[in-house]
């Protein structure tokens, strides 16, 4: 499948951004933990957390971009996304990770690890939409 276009840089990854969890609790983006996402998805009723394993990370013709191929969910659906190299994903048990953590830290002041093949990222799907 063709990769989806790179999104523009969203403001909520900036260090200090206030994030509201599903139970109403407010946390800074840099303080979020794996449990926060899991519990929020459980409360929401409409969203389901999926495990998305990084299978490939390739360069992109677009500047400062990479194409990441994930295996999503229990059926390991193959999904490719084109993202800016500083775009952070939340890795289970590890926290924010990007293809270029130095650039993420430079732009967002968000402490970040290097996203690598085999990392399991948090992603969402809508559940039971019939």
């Amino acid at each position: 499948a063709a990769p989806t276009p790179a999104p523009s840089l969203p403001p909520y990854f900036m260090k200090g951004s206030i994030i509201q969890l599903a139970d109403g609790e407010l946390k800074r983006v840099e303080d979020l933990r794996t449990e926060d996402f899991i519990q929020s998805a459980e409360i929401s009723g409409e969203l389901k957390i999926d495990s998305s394993t990084v299978e490939r990370i390739d360069g992109s013709p677009a500047p400062n971009s990479a194409i990441i191929q994930f295996a999503v969910g229990e059926h390991r659906v193959q999904v490719s996304v084109e993202v800016l190299v500083e775009y952070p994903f939340f890795v289970f048990g590890q926290g924010w990770s990007s293809c270029c953590p130095d650039r993420t830290t430079q732009l967002f002041e968000l402490s970040c690890a290097k996203l690598s093949v085999g990392d399991v990222c948090i992603s969402l799907t809508l559940k039971n939409l019939k």
Binding site: Q20, D36, V81, L124, T125, K127
Partner: peptide, 25 residues
Amino acid sequence: NVEPRSVPVFPWHSLVPFLAPTQSD
């Protein structure tokens, strides 16, 4: 008068990508 600056609050799901097409169970 100086109005207090409001701090934006973002919903948690904004930070998580939707990576898979929706599937029925």
